[in-house]
Design a binder for these strands. Structure first.
Lengths: 224, 224
DNA sequence: CAATCCCGTCACAATCGCGTCACATCACTG
DNA sequence: CAGTGATGTGACGCGATTGTGACGGGATTG
């Protein structure tokens, strides 16, 4: 089952965190004027308030549509009142949908669950492009200069996590947590093996080595 | 461009007939307690009033969902007032969506057009050309480099579903649902057998293996 | 109504993934 | 340049996942 990623412009997300039982299926994040703060795998559901402190909701909606990483999110505009003209404008700005607020926790979840089954029909791809490296999250496939890289699941997760945090030293502990492997406890040295395997796989596809070792600290994904 | 079929429980349809210019793109029909009066091809958009003279709107919604001919219609419930409890019940009854009425002509069209663009990717193609693979939906035949592939009905459906969702990891669950086999429940491992048989049939026609296994997730049709 | 075909399930074999270990190699220090 | 600690990596083995031949019931065909 896919993870469902829900983005909200209000603080409702925190409240939903507690409300939801199954955290393997849902993630919540606050949607700021710069878009989502982290990239995710799986369908994205954005709920945008009509009025925001620093930006018009419509403008945020347009930005999401313009950014290839979020272009295929399902965007719901949250109207303050049921003004037909506003509805129209929301849909024109690229929203898929609108509701009349204020938003409640159950409204968000019900809506997502009801529409979710339809979402599998969409095959827009979410992708990272980091120099020669392209990561296609929908196909779970990475390429170097167009050449497919054969990656095992753990290698793919690792590469994805690096791609989400480029130019930043990640400790072995960061990586273990980033891949969600708290249980059972993983030996830190195992990370070295992960890195080695990932490097080898990239090399086998004719790629370079974007992973730099930072002695006694961790590893960095070098970009640019 | 596909025809858009709009079903309404009110007499708004007659009014829309006049309102709309392009009658090649739209059909309108009155939705009675027995469901639609005629069957149509292409996407179906139903708008159901919350209260109906002879039947509760919710019950009609459930009936549409239960009937395989209309199960995949996009159902919008038209609420009289914006009661959160009603919204919830609408979605639980299988509705995809709700609006607060009364329904206007422009609301119907705006809504359909906005949501339609998402769905349109699905049914438009009668012929897929995916690298060496060509699928002729009209002739129900597939070819690899011009060589006919002998496929059993289920294999054809499977291949078609993959072709509709290329470069996208499909879980076993996606595939079971995609082939419309919810009843009786299908063992997920059966999908592996489907894949094996499809691969063998493609190979028998001299084809390659476009189906990549994504361990512990599902399968992808690799394109490019 | 017999012959054939199709397909879902099962069981077993084959393969794969990955965490760990052990040893080789490397990088920094003085 | 020796010493020390950190990193690279081949090998191993367990457990999980996938591939597939065989079987049988139900549908389809002639």
């Amino acid at each position: 089952m896919d993870v469902v990623n829900i983005f909200l412009t209000s603080e409702l997300g925190e409240s939903l965190e507690d409300f939801v039982h199954d955290h393997r299926r849902f993630t919540f994040d606050r949607l700021g004027p710069e878009g989502p703060r982290r990239l995710v795998e799986g369908p994205m559901w954005a709920f945008i308030d009509w009025v925001l402190p620093d930006l018009a909701g419509l403008e945020l909606c347009r930005r999401l549509r313009a950014d290839p990483r979020t272009a295929d999110a399902h965007v719901t505009m949250v109207l303050e009142e049921d003004d037909p003209e506003d509805r129209r404008r929301a849909l024109r700005a690229g929203a898929d949908d609108y509701v009349v607020g204020p938003l409640t926790r159950t409204a968000v979840l019900d809506r997502v669950l009801a529409l979710q089954s339809r979402a599998s029909e969409r095959n827009a791809t979410r992708r990272f492009e980091l120099g020669a490296l392209v990561i296609d999250m929908a196909a779970l496939q990475a390429r170097w200069d167009g050449e497919p890289i054969v990656l095992r699941p753990n290698e793919f997760r690792l590469l994805r996590f690096f791609a989400e945090n480029p130019n930043r030293v990640l400790t072995r502990d960061d990586l273990i947590n980033g891949l969600g492997k708290r249980e059972p406890p993983i030996d830190e040295r195992t990370v070295d093996v992960w890195i080695g395997r990932l490097r080898r796989s990239i090399k086998a596809a004719g790629g370079g080595n974007p992973l730099r070792t930072v002695r006694s600290l961790g590893y960095v994904f070098d970009l640019g």
